[in-house]
Design a protein around this nucleic acid. Structure first.
Lengths: 167, 167
DNA sequence: ATAAACTTTCAATAATTACTGAAAGTTTAA
DNA sequence: TTAAACTTTCAGTAATTATTGAAAGTTTAT
């Protein structure tokens, strides 16, 4: 496999994986393109490389910046804006985990807490609802806490912890 | 909050969370309905409760069965088929983690391995592609291994391990 | 073998989500 | 202040994904 083929394979695979996990294709592809690029890229270059429109590129770059995994890299003397992604996979994982926790997991935990706190009226179905949502709440909270804990350590800690678990 | 409201809130929240993570709404809602039900439900009952068509119910039940988290519960003397979901949250988490690993993570790890194994032609861009996809490969493999490790223990082990990590 | 009771399939359609391109907006240089 | 160089926005459209409903299929009872 040659460079060009490998690059395309990587970008398109990453795009499909994103889709499978609720992330849009263009967003995943822009990120992966930046991830293997040796330099910051302009909007023009991204559009050209991925064959997507200016508007699409602009919107997805903004989203990636909102997620904190892409940043503007101002190149001295250049008028255009250039973009780079976090290049360290562990930092990348940190950002993504942190954001998904904040945006998606935390709110659901909150609702599970509310739902599992309804008044027990003594009926079987109410008891079951309370029991099951409480179990889900506890699982979600434990998993989320673990995630955040891992994510808030210095980078090397992650590998060490995981290794400890695995071996 | 009364039972009915809590129930609806739970089911619709679970549906939205599913959507956010690439699982279709009906599928997530059927599962959550079964999860808090005190008994196995027929297709009729599910359709009625969630206001979805027979075809949709049938297809999504099949998918849930493919994922191994819903099973047919044959009720003696009944012609109809009844369905239940895994009621233990930890078993549920096990199944989901295991399946997502098998279907989605493993194939991507394979591709990352291929891509990161291309011949180093000495150019900077090739070196970068190799370096970055290798880093991603290692991260994915470590995370996946951890997942599978956790997932293949007896149930209580999970909580213990997570607790150890957190405290 | 027939029919009733049920489930599955799938073409048509609806709903959702992503993408485009051009107009409007912004920034910088002269 | 003007205009060139660039970015953002957003209404319209395209692509994708989910859902319906009815016909076809299956199973069971008689």
């Amino acid at each position: 496999m040659e460079y060009q083929e490998a690059k395309e394979k990587f970008i398109s695979t990453w795009g499909s994986l994103g889709t499978l996990w609720g992330i849009n294709k263009a967003m995943a592809q822009i990120q992966s393109l930046l991830f293997i690029s040796t330099k910051a890229l302009s909007m023009e270059e991204i559009m050209e490389e991925l064959k997507i429109s200016r508007g699409n590129t602009s919107m997805n770059l903004r989203q990636l910046m909102d997620w904190g995994i892409v940043t503007k890299a101002l190149i001295p003397g250049e008028r255009k804006e250039y973009f780079t992604t976090e290049k360290d996979v562990q930092e990348l994982a940190r950002h993504i985990a942190k954001e998904r926790s904040r945006r998606e997991i935390k709110p659901v935990i909150k609702i599970l807490k509310d739902v599992s706190s309804i008044k027990d009226d003594g009926t079987e179905k109410t008891k079951e609802l309370i029991k099951q949502t409480k179990a889900l709440h506890d699982l979600a909270e434990t998993a989320d806490a673990m995630m955040n804990k891992i994510v808030n350590q210095e980078q090397t800690w992650i590998t060490k912890s995981l290794m400890k678990l695995i071996k």
